[in-house]
Computed example of a mutant assay.
Amino acid sequence: MLKLKDRRAGNIPKRVLIYGDPGSGKSSYCNEYCRENNLKEIVIDFDSTNFTKSPVVNIDLSSDLKAYKGIKEVIKEVKNTEEYDTIVFDGVGTMLDLLISSANGMRRFADRSDRFNSILKELLSSDLSVIFIGQWDMSLDSYQDTTPNKSIIRINSLVNWIYSCKRDGDTFTQTLIKFRKELEDNKTEKKSVSKESTDMVAGDYLEQIKTNLNKPNPSKIEVLREYKEMKKSDSNLNDEMKDRILKLV
């Protein structure tokens, strides 16, 4: 008999990409995201810029080979412990640079690709959640006249949620760029959620509606029309959520 995956919400490891300018609150938002989703994270900080309360593992990044072996060892140890269930790669662009070997010619970049694919293979074969934090070069939209390397394309394709972070003065904002809806567990009693939590979900839906409409500032009528289309395939959408979405327009 074929063994089927349990793909209900809560049973699928989180795969998230968070990107933005330096100082835009990426690491802080990651810490907040982990708290909201009950994730037990361990951070590999490649740029030494993570000053959140998340635990940071100490690995040797002094050479490409030591960095590669250190990352693999962290994954192996986290897979075999119940203390953590999520690995955060903070500074993924720097991580990719660290994986470039000291070999000559194109071999240097081939080694990076092989090493990164090996790391992803370890992650995807585990039940660990993974969060990548990077600069704007992790966004495929930032490439106009050039092509991003295959590792960046791979990260964008495998993650289920992408958030962009921006800072305007003392205001920090996060925009949901991509998400894949999880399956509901109809046998599980639905938990009550706070107003703040509901407003955050409404904000995510509004960003998805803006993306669908390809309009940064749609009217309430346009939002309502798109909401009705989304409701046909999303049982989480109800009158309360509709009202909260419209209040955010």
Rank of each mutant, 00 (worst) to 15 (best):
T173W: 04
Q174M: 08
L176C: 08
L176H: 05
L176E: 02
L176T: 03
I177S: 01
K178T: 03
K178E: 05
F179G: 01
F179H: 09
E182T: 09
E184Y: 09
E184H: 03
N186M: 07
N186R: 10
E189D: 06
E189M: 06
E189L: 07
K190S: 05
K195D: 13
K195C: 00
K195M: 11
E196L: 14
S197D: 10
T198V: 12
T198I: 14
T198K: 15
M200T: 14
A202W: 09
A202P: 04
G203D: 10
D204Q: 14
D204A: 14
Y205L: 14
L206V: 04
E207V: 07
E207H: 12
E207T: 07
Q208K: 12
I209L: 05
I209K: 04
I209F: 01
K210S: 03
T211P: 01
N212E: 11
N212S: 14
N212I: 08
L213F: 07
L213Y: 04
N214C: 10
N214E: 15
K215E: 15
P216T: 03
P216S: 10
P216C: 01
N217D: 13
P218L: 04
P218W: 00
P218Y: 00
K220R: 13
I221W: 01
E222W: 06
E222S: 11
L224M: 08
E226V: 06
E226D: 09
K228N: 15
K228H: 13
K228A: 08
K228S: 10
K228D: 12
K231S: 13
K231Y: 03
K231T: 09
K232C: 02
K232Q: 06
